[in-house]
Design a protein around this nucleic acid. Structure first.
Lengths: 241, 241
DNA sequence: CGACAGTTTGAAAAAATTCAACGGAAGTGG
DNA sequence: CCACTTCCGTTGAATTTTTTCAAACTGTCG
């Protein structure tokens, strides 16, 4: 535990904007988009809602900087975090075809997002591919959701948490952040909600992974010490026999 | 149990095609579509695959009659039923943007489906709304998936099974079938896979719901005896205190 | 400082799974 | 037509996993 803490201490993770320019909707750049449609920038403080379930659906949002979570809330009050969104992610797509948003989007830290008016953005006939790209983005969202559903159905608590960390690491890496050392922007409760676990279970899983030496944990700061061991933990933990 | 069996015995559910014509992609009729694109009909025997993960993605399929399941399979062999599809449902949308299908689609009984070549179908400029309708269909799919994810995260085994039965009933009703009396086309294993439960747990949940008088079960034949009680079972079973 | 939100840990309880066995239904082949 | 196999569903008992409940601890922020 002390060793882990020491490993954490050095070299705090960068928080700045990612290096690569945001590729919107699978290749179309934001600049290209702005040439044809008015795109507003919105800043969000930590905890602030980008939109809430029930508000009129009038825009998609592209995350430019910062981290958000999206939460589905049922009428009876049951709720679940449906995802954590970062630079390059498109928010609001699940509400296409509805008069109002179907979920909440909350900033987890200071965020900058681009507002893409919808459906006006579709009238952007100068970019004939846009609609097709949007469709592909939705399909990718479905695949991602299903992949997590499979994880929730077939993996143990420890495996889910390991898979979650690997996902965060991969997405960080794709944006030019460190994949081995990062700060989780969300609480244990949020992670538990997303993974269908209680927050105590998330904590225990992190503790166990740290005890195995896969990772070092200190509050929300995570350091991946042994990537392949973490990968092993995420997959079917088949014991040799 | 004897009483339930008696209740089941009478009036076996209809298996024929549904009454209303299939409304494709939120309003566009199949006839309209066929005017512009070649649409092939395919028949499937029970157990036959419509497509398999890894095969080249070249078409979407619209279910005309019969029932299918779609299964996501991970590289390590873990698999999950991602949904049960019936008349009017569109299959293959999750693979849009990929070179190959990302899941299996298996007929649960004799099926008839319409093959919609993709992407050629998009070239159908005579129907400008088609692409937009497709996008909306994808968004609806996301909402449906998330809604089930919420159910898996927040509901007990009994509640999930009750919710599942209510979903089947509602979809049957939407197609003109009986919502109160139907035959499940899938095994307990399939239901369990979809609901993230083991097949024994599904059986036990059905037994408990039957014991409460909500439903009568005999093999795959289900009769809903007390709809509001079943609804109560599906929602947070809050006891009066 | 003091309140507070978030995290950690332990122990007991609840829920679901695993393992094992049995029984019915359908299908196969003689 | 019957014997036989196989698949599917059901049930019980033991076990495992996760949750629940309770308490303590740690940073942060006003």
């Amino acid at each position: 535990m002390i060793a882990n803490a020491a490993a954490i201490r050095s070299n705090p993770p960068r928080i700045a904007e990612a290096l690569p320019p945001a590729a919107v909707l699978g290749g179309l750049s934001l600049e290209e988009l702005r040439r044809h449609v008015p795109v507003l920038q919105r800043k969000l403080a930590p905890g602030q809602y980008l939109y809430r379930a029930g508000q009129p659906f009038q825009a998609l949002y592209l995350v430019h900087a910062g981290f958000l979570k999206t939460c589905l809330v049922a009428e009876d009050g049951r709720e679940q975090v449906t995802g954590f969104r970062m630079r390059g992610d498109l928010l609001g797509v699940e509400s296409i075809g509805m008069p109002v948003y179907g979920c909440d989007a909350v900033a987890l830290d200071t965020c900058s997002v681009w507002e893409l008016p919808y459906p006006p953005i579709l009238a952007c006939t100068h970019i004939p591919e846009l609609q097709a790209r949007l469709t592909e983005a939705l399909a990718a969202e479905i695949r991602s959701d299903r992949s997590w559903m499979l994880a929730l159905s077939t993996l143990s608590a420890d495996q889910r948490v390991a898979a979650f960390l690997l996902d965060v690491a991969a997405r960080h890496e794709a944006l030019g952040f460190s994949a081995r050392h990062f700060v989780l922007r969300m609480s244990r409760v949020d992670i538990g909600s997303f993974l269908a676990l209680k927050h105590e279970t998330v904590t225990r899983a992190l503790t166990r992974l740290a005890a195995q030496g896969c990772i070092a944990v200190q509050w929300r700061e995570i350091r991946i010490l042994d990537l392949s061991a973490l990968r092993d933990s995420a997959r079917c933990e088949m014991r040799v026999h």
